[in-house]
Computed example of a mutant assay.
Amino acid sequence: MLSPVPDDDGAPFWQYAARGELRIQACADCGELRFPPRPCCPHCHSFASEWRRMSGRGRVWSYVVPHPPLLPAYAAQAPYNAIVVELAEAPRIRLVGNLVSGPGAPLNSVAVERIRIGARVQVVFTEAGSDAAGTSVPRWVLERS
């Protein structure tokens, strides 16, 4: 598995993820949420920011199912899904991840036929792997109806 490489602006995202929290950067002056994280608010140009906790709920906005040839780290897991999730509280904020059957489940644990645009999902966190000890990545599970 590829591990995230946090930069100064995005480091808090990964610190919160390691605690099992989905937080999004917000402008401390005008309140606009922004992702990916960056030093300056694109709306009011303030450099003041804070990290707001999200519910972790969203909807599948788009998805793809990559097939080989792929990066070597992912080839053995193919085919698997990569989804784009729009957050419930902020539909303009979209995160890329994988739809899995549960925390710690493999990337290919959900049958492609079960993935639907608009499906409601909930975030779960999975440790990124041995080369990134202490780093958790957000993944998604289908919400129970």
Results as ranks from 00 to 15, higher is better:
L2G: 04
V5C: 03
D8G: 05
D8C: 00
F13G: 02
Q15Y: 01
Y16Q: 04
Y16T: 03
G20Y: 07
G20A: 09
I24A: 00
Q25I: 02
Q25H: 05
A26L: 01
C27A: 11
C27G: 08
R34F: 05
F35V: 04
F35L: 06
R38H: 07
P39L: 12
C40E: 12
C41K: 02
H43M: 09
H43W: 10
S46I: 12
S46T: 11
F47G: 12
S49I: 04
S49K: 06
R52S: 08
R53V: 13
S55A: 11
G58F: 11
G58E: 13
W61I: 00
Y63F: 15
V64P: 00
H67D: 04
P68G: 05
P72Q: 12
A73F: 00
Q77L: 11
P79S: 09
N81G: 09
I83L: 10
V85K: 04
L87C: 08
P91L: 10
R92I: 02
R94G: 03
G97E: 07
G97Y: 06
N98S: 14
L99T: 06
A105Y: 04
L107T: 08
V110S: 00
V110M: 00
V112G: 00
R116I: 02
R116L: 10
Q122K: 14
T126Y: 04
E127T: 10
A128Q: 01
A128L: 01
G129Y: 07
T135L: 13
V141G: 00
V141M: 03
L142W: 08
